[in-house]
């Protein structure tokens, strides 16, 4: 898209590249306030983008956790014997999209239930003899939680299966909520990334507009387009990367603090934030990538129209 070719002469000498790099870095100093404005605008927009990226990734992660807790409970009919149960297990294993099948015999189910009651369990001791209260059952987890309703329907058709329960409408509502949250997150991030690009490109454009005359002079004394372009290319790159490094550092330290305080105060099984690694690297990588891209893109696009002298 943006070809940095060496026009009108043979391949650029390495020494000349060195000159362009030096010149590009020098320009950052020479432009003082303009450079500062551009770096700050990259910093602020990428910081906001980074915060929302972290937020969206964590909301997604929490939604995943909540969805992972959805499971199908299929009771076995009371009259089924052991070989029926074994057949059913095999049939279940053949259903596609199932991640895990666990058989919970009636006794174990009741014990787990009683254990969950704690002290009050003693009032329900007689349930241990009552197979109708809590029959044998299969607890099934699907590979993709969103497939749960479909798979539950398939399981219902199998022989020896009594009732199938997966939370029904509650689960479907949960899925629609988590899906909405994810989509809003994605739209928000894309919108924000786009705004960031425009804002930063605009700042860079203003800084380069101020140098329109310079570019024209360079062309008039015989500089080729690539000779003019290279230092701007380097300048944009450095500007974008420096502008991204600072928000990346702020986000990493801030997120570290957040993780510490959350782990001390909120203890909900599904409320697990994403761990520091590899998230910290991913975020830094994304921000620096965007910064570098926007820096280069902004400067190359902006000088393009001044080169026609």
């Amino acid at each position: 898209m943006f070809v940095i070719s060496s026009e009108g002469n043979t391949a650029m000498k390495i020494k000349t590249l060195g000159r362009h790099v030096r010149e590009g870095i020098k320009n950052i100093g020479r432009n003082g306030w303009m450079t500062l404005a551009a770096i700050v605008s990259v910093m602020v927009t990428l910081l906001v983008l980074g915060v929302f990226l972290l937020l969206a990734l964590n909301v997604n992660h929490i939604a995943d956790n909540i969805e992972q807790d959805v499971e199908i409970r299929a009771t076995v009919e009371l009259e089924a014997n052991e070989s029926d149960i074994e057949t059913l297990r095999n049939q279940l294993a053949a259903v596609s999209g199932i991640a895990q099948i666990e058989f919970v015999p009636s006794e174990q189910g009741v014990e787990e239930f009683l254990a969950s009651l704690g002290e009050d369990a003693r009032y329900f001791e007689e349930l241990k003899e009552d197979h109708e209260f809590l029959p044998d059952m299969f607890v099934i987890q699907t590979k993709n939680p969103q497939d749960t309703p479909d798979i539950a329907q398939q399981i219902e058709q199998l022989d020896s299966v009594g009732k199938v329960n997966y939370g029904g409408e509650t689960t479907e509502t949960l899925f629609s909520v988590t899906n909405t949250v994810r989509n809003i997150g994605i739209i928000f991030i894309i919108g924000l990334a786009f705004t960031a690009m425009l804002l930063i490109a605009n700042t860079i454009k203003v800084t380069i507009n101020a140098r329109k005359t310079e570019i024209e002079i360079m062309k008039l004394v015989g500089a080729s387009n690539s000779f003019v372009r290279w230092p701007f290319f380097i300048e944009g790159l450095v500007l974008g990367v420096v502008g991204a490094l600072i928000p990346a550092l702020i986000l990493i330290f801030g997120y570290d603090q957040l993780l510490r305080s959350v782990s001390e105060t909120i203890r909900l099984p599904f409320f697990q934030l994403l761990p520091m690694y590899p998230l910290a690297f991913q975020i830094s990588f994304v921000l620096i990538g965007i910064g570098a891209f926007i820096g280069i893109w902004g400067s190359i696009i902006s000088i393009h129209r001044f080169l026609r002298v």
Partner: peptide, 12 residues
């Protein structure tokens, strides 16, 4: 793309 060559061959 040939303008630079011309401009290097003269002074303005």
């Amino acid at each position: 793309r040939d303008k630079p060559k011309l401009r290097r061959s003269l002074g303005v």
